[in-house]
Design a binder for these strands. Structure first.
Lengths: 288, 288
DNA sequence: TAGATTGTTAATCGATTAACAATC
DNA sequence: TAGATTGTTAATCGATTAACAATC
């Protein structure tokens, strides 16, 4: 009954404490930190339109949150508003930028230059927020040497030198899932302490390294869950009556299935789209 | 002090209630729904290795969560385990797939075929979970007619016909931010009721339409926040002593700045990387 | 001053976690 | 039976929200 890699040290999702404690040290809840970029984006748009001040109600609407939450969030940063008036747009842009660490330069490396790596390399929203692409890296000799977003793709072998020379602390992984842990290990070994992982893999990292994950398919699955419930409250086709039977009946059915060494449920599982196949193979998208 | 579009109806982030209530109707908390895809992925890997059963401890490690949370999550689905033994892998794959609605076919349209649209069109993780790309759409005549992932890119004008003919209920927006709301409106008008938005824009949709958002830059900003705190607990450069002064002093300083019509803080904000510039312009990434 | 809006309080709600009885 | 592991309970924690006093 062995499974894959034991979680020898901390991995991404299971240490909500690490990140939480870090921010709690300055008293800013993680949920608030996650919303600061939304506020910053809305404020930047106002700034570009030369709007001098904005109320919590207006800014909340622009950011897509409710105003009580916004005021609560801002209260963790300090008292930056003026009662009866609102918030000074420019000042708030600066304070939030500073709080998020965006007033400094953050060199990042992107590893795995497939379509997604390309998309990220070209993403204007990075550069405008202090993130600078220090290097694009790939293991594939056919990709190395090509250009993406005006930068040459360099070989993975140069990783350590680049990280050291440019003081890179943030790495972005856009490799196929099979290469992700290995790439992660090398990034960490080279000195990277924050990783943004686009590969559908659970990464294991030492304490002190933060991993965040963006999963292109999970959001779609969550949408499907809710969509299914809109259509009429019935479960999907291919359903067995047993699946909705009371607990004890279900448990007995499960036992029978196991005893039969597969049987009905296993057949259903195999006919389901999630059964087998090249799961999560992003090689077409993400050469490494 | 006017800001952009008033939130005439519900928009994505501010209605945590809508999605929550939908799932609560069947008793499954939203946080649990969001983890089901993680469990499914781990289980699928076990299934491919022909592992027959798995304990909550092992599966939790593979999915990157703690085992108490996993058992609690599974308890909302029913009693699918066997005490002393664990969970039947194939059966659980099927049950979670069914719960997420992945045992049925979900045709999706992708609008905006830049690098990111390409990456998504090629993403193997979609097809293997019941998501079928019904059409790729773009407004740019130079893009229309080219091929991506073996499919022809079709013109936006065909949107309504495609959605109707193929019963598309899920749309993916990978356009530049300026086009996103307009595209969203057309999707909704055509009958789409779930939207996955990659454009850095707050979308406004009518009740009954779900929007989820994937933001390529927000995760990086959250990492920067934590990274900044690792370096030593000092705020970034460009800092004023006033910024860390007690509340009343800060408030007074803010008032002075406003009275002076900008002054020090505004200058700092302008020199900060988030000040001005082509914010969120993904046109290089996402032609529409 | 009167009106407007912030910052904070307190109640509520949902999520997490450890512990353990139930039971295979 | 003895060992293993689930499913559930209850405590704790963090996040959300409405309401309103403070105050511009």
């Amino acid at each position: 009954m062995a499974i894959g890699r034991p979680s020898s040290s901390s991995s991404q999702t299971p240490d909500p404490g690490a990140a939480r404690r870090t921010s709690r040290a300055r008293g800013i809840p993680e949920a608030t930190v996650a919303r600061l970029p939304l506020y910053l984006r809305a404020l930047t748009a106002l700034s570009e339109r030369s709007v001098p001040t904005v109320s919590s109600e207006e800014l909340a609407a622009a950011a897509g949150v409710n105003s009580a939450k916004l005021r609560k969030d801002f209260s963790y940063l300090g008292s930056y508003g003026t009662r009866g008036v609102g918030y000074d747009v420019e000042y708030l842009v600066y304070q939030i930028s500073r709080e998020l660490g965006l007033t400094q330069d953050w060199p990042v490396v992107i590893v795995g230059i497939g379509n997604l790596g390309h998309a990220l390399a070209n993403y204007g929203g990075f550069a405008s927020r202090g993130f600078r692409v220090a290097a694009l890296l790939d293991a594939d000799p056919n990709v190395v040497g090509t250009a993406a977003a005006g930068l040459p793709v360099r070989h993975m072998d140069e990783l350590e030198a680049i990280v050291a020379a440019q003081h890179v602390s943030i790495g972005v992984i856009t490799t196929p899932p099979g290469a992700a842990q290995q790439v992660c290990d090398r990034l960490v070994e080279a000195g990277v302490t924050s990783i943004l992982n686009f590969a559908p893999t659970v990464l294991t990292v030492p304490d002190g390294v933060d991993v965040r994950k963006v999963d292109l398919s999970i959001e779609l699955q969550i949408l499907a869950f809710h969509e299914q419930r809109k259509a009429g409250d019935e479960p999907a086709a291919g359903d067995s009556v047993l699946d909705r039977a009371p607990g004890p009946v279900r448990a007995a059915a499960a036992k029978l299935r196991r005893a039969a060494g597969g049987g009905k449920a296993a057949e259903q599982a195999k006919s389901a789209p999630t059964g087998k196949g090249p799961e999560d193979d992003l090689s077409a998208v993400m050469p490494a």
